[in-house]
Computed example of a mutant assay.
Amino acid sequence: MTDGNPQALFPITNIAQVCVIVPDLDKAVENYWKVFGIGPWTFYTYSKPLVKRMTRHGRPCEYQMRVALANVGPMRIELIEPLEGDTVYSEFVARHGYGVHHIGVLIENMNEALDRARQAGLEMTQDGAGFGPDDDGHYAYLATEDLIGTTVELIERPKRRNQPEKVYPPEE
């Protein structure tokens, strides 16, 4: 195993998430659980007021999506159902249909990671911040699809998570 290219413009050392855009979040989660045994799933609606700061192409905006999260070993699976607004998700569906949208990379400091991305010539297309209960947590998408065939999401996870809207399967 190698540590990768030390001269890379924007080195990635840890892919922690794979995201699939789906048309019906509840049905997709049920299928992942019943067919593959993946779960339990936690559900959130990412919009204001949960996500306090959102931008698209560097300008403040508002959008809404439903998200379900589950772990498979050390990998997190994220399912997203786009609901409202001009987003990287709706753009992807218009271009490709539903399917695998991005890989998620955990980072420690979003500002530093975005500075490195800019220096590498990678544009941020959308982000959201302040979704943790302590106003932390930040995600940002980079325009990488033309380079590598998928989008890279930078993820600075919040230290704590808000209570999910629901869990599937329901806890008994």
Rank of each mutant, 00 (worst) to 15 (best):
D3L: 08
G4P: 10
N5I: 03
Q7S: 13
Q7P: 00
F10S: 00
I12E: 08
T13W: 00
Q17V: 11
Q17K: 05
Q17I: 13
V20F: 10
V22T: 12
P23E: 07
P23T: 06
D24N: 14
D24Q: 12
D24E: 13
D26L: 04
D26R: 12
K27L: 13
V29Q: 01
N31V: 10
W33V: 10
K34P: 00
G37H: 06
I38G: 02
W41H: 09
Y44R: 04
T45Y: 00
T45H: 03
Y46G: 01
S47Q: 15
S47T: 14
K48E: 12
L50Q: 05
V51N: 01
V51E: 01
K52V: 07
R53D: 09
R53N: 09
T55A: 10
H57D: 15
G58Y: 05
G58N: 06
C61Q: 02
C61R: 03
E62G: 11
E62S: 14
E62I: 03
Y63R: 05
Q64R: 15
Q64I: 08
Q64G: 00
R66E: 13
V67Q: 08
V72T: 14
G73M: 09
P74G: 08
M75L: 15
R76F: 00
I77A: 06
I77N: 02
E78D: 08
L79T: 05
L79W: 01
E81F: 08
P82E: 04
L83E: 09
L83H: 00
L83P: 04
E84Q: 10
E84K: 12
E84G: 00
T87F: 01
V88G: 13
Y89G: 03
S90G: 09
E91A: 14
V93P: 12
V93I: 15
A94M: 09
R95N: 15
H96K: 15
G99R: 12
V100A: 12
V100R: 02
H101K: 10
H101Y: 06
H102V: 08
H102D: 10
V105Y: 08
I107R: 01
M110H: 11
E112G: 12
A113S: 15
L114G: 04
L114I: 13
D115L: 13
R116M: 08
R116H: 12
A117H: 00
R118A: 15
Q119T: 08
A120S: 07
G121S: 06
G121A: 07
E123R: 11
M124A: 14
T125V: 15
Q126N: 01
Q126A: 02
D127W: 04
G128D: 08
G128T: 08
G130K: 04
G130P: 05
G130Q: 02
P133E: 01
P133G: 00
D135H: 10
D136L: 01
D136N: 06
G137N: 02
A140D: 03
Y141V: 09
L142F: 10
A143D: 14
A143I: 00
E145A: 14
D146F: 03
D146A: 15
L147E: 11
L147S: 11
G149N: 06
T150D: 05
T150V: 13
T150I: 09
T151K: 11
T151W: 04
V152G: 03
V152L: 14
I155L: 13
P158L: 06
P158W: 04
K159N: 04
R161E: 01
N162D: 07
N162T: 03
Q163L: 11
P164W: 03
P164N: 04
P169N: 05
P170K: 13
P170F: 09
E172V: 12
